[in-house]
């Protein structure tokens, strides 16, 4: 069976047609029966803020530098990202599909 080290994915650049859409900042997993399976990869600086529970501070900082144009997180389903080489994750979808994966930021509330 092929295994892969997920921690290697953290901070990796994700490319769409040679252009970077951001770095992998979070990996979401859900229970599936007795197993825990990966469901989504979160890409982009806002995903990093979510991980640090720092959305408010982060957005404020980005506002100061007027960088807020990329105001969302890409939530990429597990089957749209090939992670067999974690050093070079490959996107498996079209640009149109990708824009459908944009989502807004989640709040800081504990789940």
């Amino acid at each position: 069976m092929a295994t892969v080290n997920l921690e290697q994915l953290a901070g990796r650049n994700v490319l769409s047609h040679g252009k970077s859409i951001g770095r992998i900042e979070e990996i979401r997993a859900e229970p599936d029966g007795d197993d825990l399976v990966v469901t989504e990869y979160h890409v982009g600086i806002y995903a990093a803020f979510e991980r640090l529970s720092a959305s408010a501070i982060g957005i404020a900082v980005l506002d100061v530098f007027r960088l807020r144009s990329r105001d969302s997180v890409y939530r990429i389903p597990w089957d749209k990202l090939d992670i067999s080489d974690p050093a070079r994750p490959r996107l498996l979808c079209t640009t149109e599909e990708l824009s459908g994966m944009k989502g807004s930021i989640e709040g800081d509330k504990p789940e």
Partner: peptide, 20 residues
């Protein structure tokens, strides 16, 4: 937890199998 190992399964989502 220094590392997280997932098993790649064809057609199914990667499954967490171990911590390193």
């Amino acid at each position: 937890v220094d590392g997280l190992v997932a098993e790649l399964r064809p057609g199914e989502p990667p499954k967490i199998v171990a911590v390193e």
